[in-house]
């Protein structure tokens, strides 16, 4: 069980910061940052810049994403925005538009 869950049906507009894992199943507009893992599940809608240790994107994200470890764009995920992470995977069936900065 994740520490913070934005459940389906819930909309958050604002600035969310967390020390622990964050799971988004609903809607988030604004800014999201966590020191831990961030999961954006299928069905979620995120219009925000997202920062985390590792990011898994299965929903729809519009905004720039930054991860200290990795970003995984899983099947069904949709990302419009720039990625800054040392490691990035884009699964078959995911869509992505933006720039990638792997900090080389």
């Amino acid at each position: 069980m994740a520490a913070t869950v934005i459940a389906q049906g819930i909309t958050i507009e604002g600035d969310l910061t967390a020390d622990d894992e964050v799971v988004v199943q609903g809607t988030l507009r604004g800014k999201l940052s966590s020191r831990d893992r961030v999961s954006i599940d299928a069905g979620a809608l995120v219009e925000a810049d997202v920062t985390g240790a590792s990011l898994s994107i299965g929903g729809q994200v519009t905004g720039n994403v930054t991860a200290s470890d990795r970003v995984d764009l899983v099947a069904g995920g949709k990302l419009v925005g720039d990625v800054k992470a040392a490691r990035l995977t884009i699964a078959d069936g995911a869509s992505f538009k933006g720039n990638v900065d792997m900090d080389v």
Binding site: A2, A3, T4, V5, I6, A7, Q8, G9, I10, T11, I12, E13, G14, D15, L16, T17, A18, D19, D20, V22, Q25, G26, T27, G30
Partner: peptide, 24 residues
């Protein structure tokens, strides 16, 4: 549905803004 999908703002999390919608 709302019992199964409770939204939680965990310990160590801080939110500045608006929360709206269905569920707990």
């Amino acid at each position: 549905a709302s019992a199964a999908t409770e939204a939680v703002l965990g310990r160590g999390a801080a939110l500045r803004g608006r929360v709206q919608g269905h569920g707990n």
